[in-house]
């Protein structure tokens, strides 16, 4: 049994959110720089240049990269040997969100009730928490401040198995085409195939935690990622939808076994401002 203080969870979550809203992961910055090199449209090269300038200013002057500092998505991998002491885990996570959004001068964007009064909870809680129980004695905390603009462009479908690989490609490409400039391209596209519908949506989001540009370890899946990326970039949408050759920085696909009758396909859209962090306690 390993003990982890609830207070340590709180402080870690707070630090991760505050930091992530001011600094992009290095792999995302590299991908944006490569996009600027590759982009054929001068208009979109200019946009990507300003995006990179924004990244510099955010860190240097402590101004959040984007005013939409997101819904607080927290993915926990909790070792089964871990015992959380002096408080309960989810309260500790939410307290961390409250603290981080307050200390970091981040925007509080959560309303208490989705389809009636929509009153702001004023502290950006509750966090969207997902927990996997894993072997071992550690707690891995991954966070995504998920902006509304790209999240609104996410989608779920259940294809017939007969649609196969091509059906997946068409579904993702058609969605990117339809949403165009809305999700703040160049986007990172998380795709979950298989499982039940809930599982598909979850793995589509979780695969966004993968480093940009790192292909799936499964060669068949990696090949699918390459083909979707090529098709998406052929759409011509470009950075901010102004017309260009880089519409997506990456496509990340995750698969899971599924029912003989089903092929769920989920897309979780991520804007270029792909903030994410992790820590292990």
């Amino acid at each position: 049994m390993r003990e982890i203080q609830a207070g340590d969870v709180t402080n870690t979550v707070a630090r991760l959110f505050e930091h992530s809203c001011h600094y992009l992961p290095p792999d995302v910055i590299i991908a944006l720089k490569q996009a600027r090199e590759k982009e054929k449209s001068p208009v979109c090269r200019d946009v990507l240049g300003r995006i990179l300038e924004n990244v510099e200013i955010a860190g240097k002057e402590q101004i959040p990269l984007c005013q939409d500092t997101g819904a607080a998505v927290v993915m926990l991998e909790l070792g089964q040997e871990v015992h959380i002491t002096n408080g309960d885990l989810y309260t500790a996570v939410n307290e961390g969100v409250r603290l981080g959004y307050d200390n970091g001068y981040l925007r509080k964007s959560i309303v208490n009730q989705p389809c009636f009064a929509r009153v702001n909870t004023t502290d950006n809680t509750p966090a969207m928490i997902h927990t996997d129980i894993v072997p071992g004695g550690r707690l891995k905390i991954s966070i995504l401040p998920k902006g509304g603009g790209s999240e609104n462009c996410s989608r779920l479908t259940v294809l017939t198995p007969a649609k196969g690989r091509q059906g997946v490609i068409d579904f993702v490409v058609d969605l990117v085409d339809e949403v165009g400039s809305n999700p703040c391209p160049p986007v990172i596209i998380g795709v979950g195939i298989g499982g039940t519908t809930d599982k598909a949506m979850f793995i589509a989001k979780k695969v966004l935690l993968r480093k940009v540009g790192e292909p799936s370890p499964d060669p068949e899946v990696a090949d699918l990622e390459r083909e979707i990326l090529e098709r998406v970039n052929n759409l011509g949408i470009g950075a901010m939808g102004y017309g260009g050759t880089v519409t997506a920085l990456a496509v990340h696909v995750e698969t899971f076994p599924c029912h003989i009758a089903s092929m769920p396909v989920a897309v979780n859209m991520q804007c270029w401002c792909a903030r994410r962090e992790e820590a292990i306690l």
Binding site: V47, R50, I51, E53, N54, I57, A58, E61, I63, P64, L65, C66, Q67, D68, R107, K108, S109, N120, T122, G147, G149, C184, M240, C271, W272, C273
Partner: peptide
């Protein structure tokens, strides 16, 4: 440019809330 809120804030020189303050941001 969506997501480039830091750079945009540099061009804002004056801010005054004029209505619906209860809507917060």
């Amino acid at each position: 440019i969506g997501g480039a809120g830091a750079i945009m804030s540099k061009s804002i020189k004056g801010v005054e809330i004029i209505a619906y303050e209860e809507l917060g941001a």
